[in-house]
Simulated assay, not measured.
Amino acid sequence: MLASRLRAVAVATACAAVMTSVAACGAVDKAVDKAVDEQVGQDVEKAMKKYEETAYQVTYEVTGGAVDSIAYDDASHKGSVEVPAEGGTAPKLPWRKTVTLKGSAAPTVVAVVAEGGGEVTCSVTYQGRRLTKRTAKGAFETAQCVAMSPLK
């Protein structure tokens, strides 16, 4: 009888120790998960900040007949720049402009065909690789070239 009591106490003690270990393991798991989530969040935040600050250059080009206007995104002007900016005369084709953008900025150039009609083509090039090319035909039609940021 004493042996069975001792046995029961030993089993209960062992079970209590195991249960405490299991509970401690659960707490450790949660603490580790939280620390990992915080570190990953900080790493992602740093990577995104670095990505958004990374500059890259693209070249916009418009070719074809006559255009009424050309608009393009240029980070140094914080948005869209329209040609003709001064003087009111339409841009002469072929037209080309290299600009510096940052991070996820989408390179964009839009050309509007002149009133007399014809055909106009726009394109966006990054490091010798054409990202997009579009053609518009007819008076006041628009060739819109919008590309994803080439940064990975």
Rank of each mutant, 00 (worst) to 15 (best):
D37F: 10
A8V: 10
T13K: 09
P94W: 06
G41A: 14
A23P: 04
A136D: 04
K78M: 14
P91M: 03
T108E: 06
C15L: 13
Y51K: 08
D37E: 13
T132W: 09
V146L: 11
A3V: 08
Q39N: 13
E115D: 11
V81M: 07
W95G: 01
C145H: 01
R96A: 08
R5K: 13
R130A: 08
V9R: 12
W95H: 00
T20S: 12
A143H: 01
V67M: 01
T132A: 10
E45T: 15
K46Q: 10
T121Y: 07
A8D: 14
C145V: 05
A14G: 13
P150D: 12
I70N: 00
A114L: 02
V9D: 12
K137T: 09
T13G: 09
C145F: 03
G103F: 03
K152L: 14
W95K: 02
A139Y: 03
V112K: 00
A31G: 09
T20A: 15
A90V: 01
G88Q: 02
K152N: 15
K49H: 08
E61T: 15
A136L: 06
F140D: 09
S76A: 15
A114S: 09
K50D: 15
D74K: 10
K78Y: 13
T100M: 04
E115I: 00
T98E: 04
E86I: 06
K152E: 15
L93A: 06
E86L: 07
V44L: 14
K78P: 03
K50S: 12
R134Q: 10
T59W: 08
E82Q: 14
D29W: 11
S80I: 11
H77F: 15
S69K: 00
A114T: 02
S69A: 03
K50A: 15
Q42Y: 13
A55D: 07
A24F: 13
V110L: 02
D29G: 10
A105H: 05
E45P: 01
S76R: 12
A24P: 08
V113L: 03
E82A: 09
S149R: 08
E82N: 10
V18R: 09
S69D: 00
Q39E: 14
A27T: 12
T135S: 08
M48T: 12
C145L: 05
H77A: 15
T89W: 02
V81G: 02
K34T: 11
V120A: 04
K133Y: 07
P94D: 10
F140I: 03
P107T: 05
Y51G: 07
M1E: 06
D29N: 14
H77K: 15
T125P: 02
P91R: 00
D29A: 12
C25V: 11
Y72L: 07
G41R: 13
V40M: 15
A3P: 06
K152V: 13
Y126I: 04
D33S: 12
K152R: 13
T63Q: 10
E38W: 08
L151R: 06
A114M: 07
K92H: 05
G116E: 10
V36Q: 08
P150L: 08
A66N: 05
A35S: 12
A90N: 00
E61N: 10
T125S: 03
T132N: 10
K137D: 05
V124W: 01
S69N: 01
E45A: 14
E86C: 03
V81Q: 04
C25Q: 14
A114F: 02
R96C: 05
R134W: 03
G128I: 07
V99P: 01
S76P: 07
